[in-house]
Amino acid sequence: MTSSGSDSAAPHRHRHSGVLRGVREAIPLLGGYLPVSISFGLIAIQSGFTTWEAVAISAFIYAGASQFLFVGMITAGAPLWLVVAMTLLINVRHVVYGPNLAGLLPRSRHWPWLMHGLTDQVFALALTRLPQLEARTRFSWFIGATLLAWAAWILGTAIGATAGEAVTRRWPLLGEIMPFALPALFFAMVVPRFTDRRWAFALSCTMAVALLLTLGGLSNVAIPLAAACGALCFYSVKLTYRRGGS
């Protein structure tokens, strides 16, 4: 009896510990999520949206850059079809995230709603961490990590919408220092991939192009364009090797 009871409890234990592990490992994301979502809440209120509307936009669209664009274009009086088209265009990069994770995650009927949590940051974290986890804990890890990130984004928006001005006045450095958690996290994810000169060249090129595009005010297209440049660098090194070898 005892043995069978503990056997039946084992999957629940794995699920529980997987969720907690996902939550724990997604905590560094909050350093970036909270200040940005607080800013979004504040800007949405200043643009004439109510607190509930700002929270609903964060909960349903849940894609940082496109939310700022959505609110900005609505405020500027752009036609709604153009607002929707531009918002979706910015989010097109998400198309390549899912296929990269498909082989790492088990099949489940819950994916249609769980994939709502697949942001840039969650993708980066999942692609780095999932291969290092046991297959049976990956699903629950993904739930823990995505739910924490989503909840933090919604909470940050609510704080920004209700008390954004007071928060930024009281802790002016909070919004400047905490966002560094994101580059620090991504840096710790990218460094192990500098395995040879070819990858080092492609990754460095990608980072440089993304930074330059952001400096030039093109942050909305920086991620897909920089990744495409990085892929070109990756394949050009391969071609150079082949030509040199033949």
């Binding site: 990269n100 940051q121 919004g175 991939r193 990858w199 952001t214 991620i223 920089a226 990756f234």
Partner: peptide, 27 residues
């Protein structure tokens, strides 16, 4: 049977691109 090679390459490059974008300081 396996992820297409170009997709496997694009994954880490997307992370590097997100890093590049996030390197920009707030001020």
């Amino acid at each position: 049977n396996d992820l297409p090679q170009w997709l496997g390459i694009l994954g880490p490059l997307m992370i590097a691109a997100v890093l590049g974008v996030s390197l920009m300081p707030v001020h």
